[in-house]
Structures are given as structure tokens and as C-alpha cells.
């Protein structure tokens, strides 16, 4: 029965499940393979959420430290990827809270206050579309990163962020609405 269950799982999830079990048994090679597999998406997520390379490195190290020491506490190894990102998110948000970001721009600010075009144009000129994402507030930013970059499903995003499924749906729309407005504004500014 167990064999059937494992065979019906996608290959990626299957290998995660096996690797996590091996890490639980103290297999350092399996740990290395998990790191190789997830270092890029995890670092990308942390870097874009924190906007700081050193803090992103700290967060990734802290996250993999948890993988090594707490692997046995993972309830469902099949959803290891979502668990990994939820741990990284927890540490990243702690870092953000410590920094007390003063330059958060909320959705309402952007829509109602009509952000000066120069800010939007400069942000995109210096860092492309990522410059515009950095203008979003942290919650909208993380939803865009989790969905559009890491391609998590709504259920997984809900597990990572602790938001309900309907909140994920609505908040993701709000984030995209703000981002499309910024993007269109910038496109309108470009000389044809």
C-alpha cells in the first residue's frame, strides 16, 4: 500500500520525501542535495523580500540550519518545499521587523496619492521590474514572489503565509493591481 502511495506521487515530491527522511537519519549528502536543489529559489525569495544580500544569506543559513536540526519535526515531508519557504519567511520577516522599514508604500498610498512618476520610472530604470516590486509593501511583495517567481499554488501560499485561501486570492489580486498600475504608468512614460 505504501509503495503504491509513493509511486503515485510526483517525482520531485518523491525525492524530497526520501531526502528529508535521509536528513532525519543524519545523512549529510542528502542535506547537501536539498541545499543544491533549493539554494537558488530560497536565496532569490529572501533577497527580494529583504532587499539586502547579507541578511538574505543569514536567513538562508538559518533556514538550512533548521532543516538539519529540525528535519524530524516536519509533519508532512511531501510539502517540504512549502515548509522550507515558511521557515525562511519567518526569519526574513523577523529581520524586516528589526529593520523597521520606514518606506513601505501601501496599495492605498499608491492609488490615491498618485505616486510621482519619477519614483516609478527611476525604480524600473535601476532594477527593471524588480525595482517596481520593491515599491510594494512586504505582504504584497511576498505574495508576488511566491506565486509569480516560485509558482506555489494558492494552498501552499496559504500554508506558508498563514492567510486563508480567499485572502490569498484577493491579496494577490491587490498586489497585481498595484503592480500593473505601476508597470503601465512606466510603459506610458517611455518614449515611443
Amino acid at each position: 500500500m505504501k509503495v503504491l502511495l509513493i509511486n503515485s506521487m510526483p517525482e520531485d515530491t518523491l525525492s524530497d520525501t526520501i531526502l528529508v527522511k535521509q536528513v532525519c537519519d543524519g545523512d549529510r549528502k542528502a542535506f547537501g542535495r536539498l541545499y543544491e536543489k533549493y539554494k537558488e529559489p530560497l536565496f532569490r525569495f529572501c533577497l527580494r523580500l529583504l532587499k539586502n544580500s547579507e541578511q538574505a544569506e543569514d536567513t538562508v543559513q538559518e533556514t538550512f540550519f533548521r532543516v538539519w536540526t529540525k528535519a524530524s519535526a516536519i509533519d508532512n515531508p511531501q510539502s517540504f518545499r512549502a515548509w522550507l519557504f515558511s521557515v525562511a519567511r519567518f526569519h526574513a520577516l523577523n529581520n524586516l521587523r528589526d529593520r523597521k522599514e520606514a518606506q513601505e508604500i501601501s496599495e492605498n498610498d499608491l492609488i490615491e496619492l498618485d505616486t510621482p512618476h519619477e519614483i516609478v520610472v527611476r525604480a524600473e530604470q535601476t532594477a527593471g521590474i524588480m525595482g517596481l516590486i520593491e515599491l510594494l509593501n512586504p505582504q504584497h511583495r511576498e505574495l508576488i514572489l511566491l506565486r509569480s517567481f516560485e509558482e506555489f499554488s494558492y494552498a501552499e501560499i496559504s500554508m506558508i503565509t498563514g492567510l486563508s485561501l480567499s485572502s490569498v486570492k484577493v491579496q494577490l489580486f491587490n498586489a497585481r493591481k498595484v503592480l500593473t498600475q505601476l508597470h503601465s504608468k512606466h510603459q506610458g512614460e517611455k518614449p515611443t
Partner: peptide, 15 residues
């Protein structure tokens, strides 16, 4: 248009 641009900017250098 936005999603096309987002997918095009995924790669990142790892320290």
C-alpha cells in the same frame, strides 16, 4: 504583459 516580464527576471547570482 506583467507576468511575461516577471518570468523573464527569475535568474539570480548566488554568493
Amino acid at each position: 504583459r506583467l507576468e511575461l516580464r516577471l518570468t523573464g527576471s527569475r535568474s539570480i547570482a548566488i554568493p
